[in-house]
């Protein structure tokens, strides 16, 4: 087993007015996808307008992570809350999201500020 490994992914959340901002750093795979999803959902109060996730520093995202994002979108939309992802153009994460056609359900922004602004403006 060896020494305890550091968490594969870190999730930092903050609230900017009515928008929850989350930054996911590290790797997301099937071993921690559910945990990350719980962290993200738990950070969004019912009063919030929506969630902006900054994936700019995410090093690895596979289909388990993509599945997480699909489910997250579905739950937030049921609560009437918006979801936007900040994924820099040309990053492999954006490529994964495009390949899995997540962009058809969730809007992708170049940075998190854009995501926040878009959520506010949609209210």
């Amino acid at each position: 087993m060896g020494a305890p490994q550091p968490p594969l992914a870190q999730v930092e959340t903050s609230i900017d007015d009515d928008v929850v901002v989350a930054r996911v750093v590290g790797e997301v795979d099937m071993s921690n996808a559910i945990e990350v999803q719980d962290r993200l959902l738990g950070a969004v109060p019912a009063s919030a307008h929506g969630l902006a996730i900054d994936l700019a520093e995410l090093a690895y995202l596979d289909s388990a992570g993509v599945r997480l994002l699909f489910e997250l979108q579905e739950r937030l939309s049921r609560r009437g809350q918006g979801l936007r992802l900040a994924v820099p153009a040309g990053s492999h994460v954006r490529r994964v999201l495009l390949l899995t056609r997540l962009d058809t359900l969730v809007a992708l922004d170049e940075d998190v500020a854009a995501s926040i602004a878009a959520i506010r403006s949609s209210v």
């Binding site: 289909s63 599945r67 490529r95 390949l99």
Partner: peptide
């Protein structure tokens, strides 16, 4: 299931 089945597509796409 929804949101599943992306594995093979991803591999092929990458």
């Amino acid at each position: 299931g929804r949101g599943r089945g992306h594995g093979l597509g991803l591999m092929q796409g990458l």
